[in-house]
Design a protein around this nucleic acid. Structure first.
Length: 490
RNA sequence: CGGGAAGUGGCGCAGGUGGUAGCGCAUCUGGUUUGGGACCAGAGGGUCGCAGGUUCGAAUCCUGUCUUCCCGACCA
């Protein structure tokens, strides 16, 4: 097993790749661009799923499951949607293999060509809206508030573990409403769910906003997003929520009869977050010693490591350790006692730091004499001696403190990386330094494109509740009514 | 999908002018160890990414292909 990580300062990208592998989160598979999510990584994802799923249900949503395959004809029904996804779709053309004539392996049976090709879903709007047509007749059938947990495939040309993989896991919510206002409220509500989740569970502060036309979801009238800032100064879209208007309802003929007797098309939203959040989590909190996990998501929150010579000492320590474990479990703390004799304490310390365990308790013979344990905090890499008496009682609060400290640290970094600039020279310099840049923009897609060409920066969003302020576009000098948020992004 | 680099025991690498593969770490056994990745001794493990070709003989030369990394265009 490889050891020291490349420091972030030396090569951030290499640090990220090594960390994912060494912390046992995921690895590349034999399939180009597709990863294997390993148990430690998947446990974290399961934690995210559980927290999100609870929030979805609390806001009235139900889970369902739609097919992996989408008939090609469905895809062509919504023009903007096709444009957005056509270039990255995997297509199933045959349904059978046969033995190769040369006796080596199998080949596609050309006689088994599908009459209509199937798309492997890059997102499920089309199959879902085709289904909803049958579910909606009356205003009484609305709203439909459905979410699905699924995998999707987008044939990416350049992939990175968690951040951009060909296949990824996500949830996609798809809702149908009787009115425009209700659909917009739903999209806004889910954005708020994502923000609250990001901050309280992931400990990642985000900026909420709306996307410009260029960055909008294919087929949406409005895309809302939460944008986070990574340690290297690049932005990452952590979640999106879309107001789809009546585009899909019209494309798939989903209508209902309203109270007033009129037949109307329904109003739609969709919203999603993906395993990309794993990348966001890593790049927000982790350091050169490895992964740093917020306690709410850590599969192991507290690890106990005995330090001993000989059976006798181990027995004495285990007695105390096992009692502590039981007390912590009773308080709902996820705890592990690592009494493996095959590794030395120092090895274990490094291992758990690499894997991001928030708290580590070291217990040796000297500690037993003094009635203390050595308590190490992963986020600060600090150590202190704490009395065993009453220790278990204080652990939940300590975990809470770490959770808060991670959010505070990330929030401070976000605030410090938010720059306001008014000239093109300042703009270029600020983008080059990294971080978010608030600058005036004339509102045209062409200007946005030109800025992207020249600086690689994109408009991440127009922040919610953005104050209106007259100014001049940072590139063209044309009139602008507000500053928008720029950054280079993942 | 274009440009560059790379694939050799589990991991990191050497070898390379063609002659049948080696080092470090990891693994296994035994012993000594255990407060920040222990030490000694012994052992096991590789059809050199894959498929063709050249050759008496290929890890080495040629062709194709797959995968990974970096840079671009595209993107959650």
């Amino acid at each position: 097993m490889a050891k020291n990580l490349t420091p972030r300062e030396v090569d951030y990208s290499k640090w990220y790749n090594e960390l994912i592998i060494q912390a046992d989160l995921a690895e590349n598979s034999g399939v180009r661009g597709c990863m294997v999510i390993k148990p430690h990584g998947y446990a974290i994802w399961e934690g995210m799923q559980a927290e999100l799923d609870r929030r979805f249900k609390e806001t009235g949503h139900e889970n369902a499951y739609f097919p992996l395959f989408i008939p090609k004809s469905y895809f062509s029904k919504e023009a903007a949607h096709v444009d957005g996804f056509a270039k990255e779709c995997a297509v199933v053309t045959h349904y059978r293999l046969k033995n190769s004539p040369d006796g080596k392996g199998v080949i596609v049976d050309e006689d088994a060509k599908l009459e209509e090709e199937l798309i492997v879903r890059p997102t499920s709007e089309t199959i879902i809206w085709d289904t909803y047509r049958g579910w909606v007749k009356s205003y009484r059938d609305l709203p439909i508030l459905v979410n699905q947990w699924a995998n999707v495939v987008r044939w990416e040309l350049r992939t990175r573990l968690f951040l951009r993989t060909t296949e990824f896991l996500w949830q996609e919510g798809h809702t149908a409403h009787a009115t425009r206002e209700e659909a917009i409220a739903e999209a806004e509500q889910m954005l708020e769910v994502y923000r609250e989740f990001a901050e309280t569970v992931l400990a990642i502060p985000v900026v909420r906003g709306t996307k410009t036309a260029n960055e909008r979801f294919a087929g949406a009238l409005e895309s809302y997003c939460i944008e986070a800032l990574m340690q290297d100064g690049k932005a990452l879209q952590a979640g999106t929520s879309h107001f789809l208007g009546q585009n899909f309802a019209k494309a798939f003929d989903v209508k209902f009869q309203d109270r007033d007797g009129q037949v109307k098309h329904v109003w739609a939203t969709s919203w999603g977050v993906s395993t990309r959040l794993m990348g966001a989590l890593v790049m927000t909190h982790s350091d050169d010693s490895g992964l740093v996990l917020p306690p709410k998501l850590a599969p192991i929150q507290v690890v106990l490591v005995p330090i001993y010579r000989g059976e006798e000492e181990l027995l004495a320590i285990s007695l105390v350790a096992k009692k502590l474990v039981a007390e912590l479990r009773a308080k709902g703390v996820r705890v592990k006692y690592d009494d493996r004799d095959s590794y030395k304490p120092g090895w274990k310390f490094n291992e758990y730091e690499l894997k991001g365990v928030p708290l580590r308790l070291g217990i040796g013979p000297r500690d037993l004499e003094n009635g203390v344990v050595e308590l190490a905090r992963r986020d600060t890499l600090t150590k202190e001696f704490v009395a065993i008496e009453g220790l278990a009682d204080s652990i939940p609060a300590r975990l809470e403190e770490i959770q808060q400290a991670l959010l505070d640290r990330a929030s401070a970094r976000l605030a410090a990386s938010m720059h306001r600039v008014d000239s093109w020279a300042e703009f270029e310099a600020a983008i080059e330094r990294g971080g978010f840049v608030m600058a005036h923009w004339d509102g045209s897609p062409e200007t946005e494109d030109r800025i992207k060409e020249q600086t690689k920066a994109t408009i991440r969003c127009i922040p919610i509740d953005n104050p209106l302020e007259d100014g001049a576009c940072v590139l063209t000098g044309r009139p602008s009514i507000q500053r928008v948020l720029f950054a280079r992004a993942y």
